[in-house]
Computed example of a mutant assay.
Amino acid sequence: MTRNKMKLVLLVSILLMGLTGTLGWASNSLQGKIDERTTVIWIEGTALGDMVIGSRAQAAFVYVDGTLSHAVASDPNAPEWLKWHSNHYSDKKLKNRALFIMRYKAIKRWSFSPEMIRIGEYKVTDDDILTSKDFMAVGELPPDSTGTLAFSVPAKYVPKGRNILISLGDFSGELNVPKR
Rank of each mutant, 00 (worst) to 15 (best):
21 G>N: 09
36 E>T: 15
13 S>K: 00
9 V>C: 03
6 M>F: 05
18 G>A: 14
20 T>W: 10
31 Q>Y: 12
17 M>F: 10
28 N>G: 14
38 T>H: 05
28 N>Q: 13
25 W>F: 13
33 K>L: 15
13 S>Q: 04
8 L>Q: 14
26 A>L: 13
22 T>M: 14
18 G>N: 04
20 T>K: 03
20 T>L: 10
5 K>L: 13
23 L>E: 12
19 L>G: 00
9 V>K: 09
39 T>L: 04
28 N>E: 12
33 K>G: 05
11 L>Q: 07
14 I>K: 01
20 T>I: 12
7 K>T: 02
17 M>E: 03
22 T>F: 15
10 L>R: 06
5 K>H: 08
14 I>E: 01
24 G>M: 09
25 W>E: 02
22 T>Y: 15
23 L>I: 05
22 T>L: 15
35 D>T: 13
15 L>T: 08
16 L>K: 00
21 G>A: 13
22 T>S: 14
27 S>Y: 05
12 V>S: 03
6 M>Q: 12
19 L>Q: 04
18 G>D: 05
9 V>A: 08
33 K>V: 05
24 G>Y: 14
30 L>P: 00
20 T>S: 12
9 V>E: 09
36 E>L: 12
13 S>V: 03
8 L>M: 14
11 L>Y: 04
31 Q>A: 11
32 G>W: 06
19 L>N: 05
19 L>D: 01
34 I>C: 03
5 K>D: 12
20 T>A: 07
33 K>N: 11
15 L>Q: 03
26 A>F: 08
21 G>D: 06
19 L>F: 13
33 K>I: 02
9 V>T: 09
33 K>H: 05
26 A>V: 11
19 L>S: 06
18 G>R: 05
20 T>H: 02
23 L>P: 08
21 G>I: 00
26 A>P: 00
30 L>C: 07
25 W>Q: 06
12 V>P: 02
23 L>G: 06
12 V>N: 01
18 G>T: 04
17 M>C: 06
28 N>C: 06
23 L>K: 08
11 L>T: 10
5 K>F: 06
11 L>F: 12
31 Q>M: 09
35 D>N: 14
20 T>C: 07
6 M>N: 12
32 G>P: 03
25 W>V: 04
30 L>Y: 04
23 L>F: 14
14 I>W: 02
5 K>M: 13
21 G>V: 03
24 G>H: 10
11 L>M: 09
20 T>V: 13
30 L>I: 07
15 L>Y: 03
28 N>I: 04
22 T>R: 09
17 M>P: 00
10 L>Q: 06
22 T>Q: 12
31 Q>D: 15
21 G>M: 11
12 V>W: 01
22 T>A: 15
29 S>M: 08
14 I>D: 04
5 K>V: 11
14 I>C: 10
35 D>Y: 12
26 A>R: 14
7 K>G: 01
26 A>W: 08
33 K>A: 11
25 W>T: 03
33 K>R: 14
39 T>C: 05
27 S>P: 00
35 D>P: 02
30 L>W: 11
37 R>K: 13
34 I>W: 06
10 L>V: 04
38 T>N: 03
13 S>G: 15
34 I>Y: 01
35 D>C: 10
29 S>P: 01
37 R>T: 02
29 S>R: 13
10 L>P: 00
23 L>W: 10
12 V>H: 01
14 I>T: 11
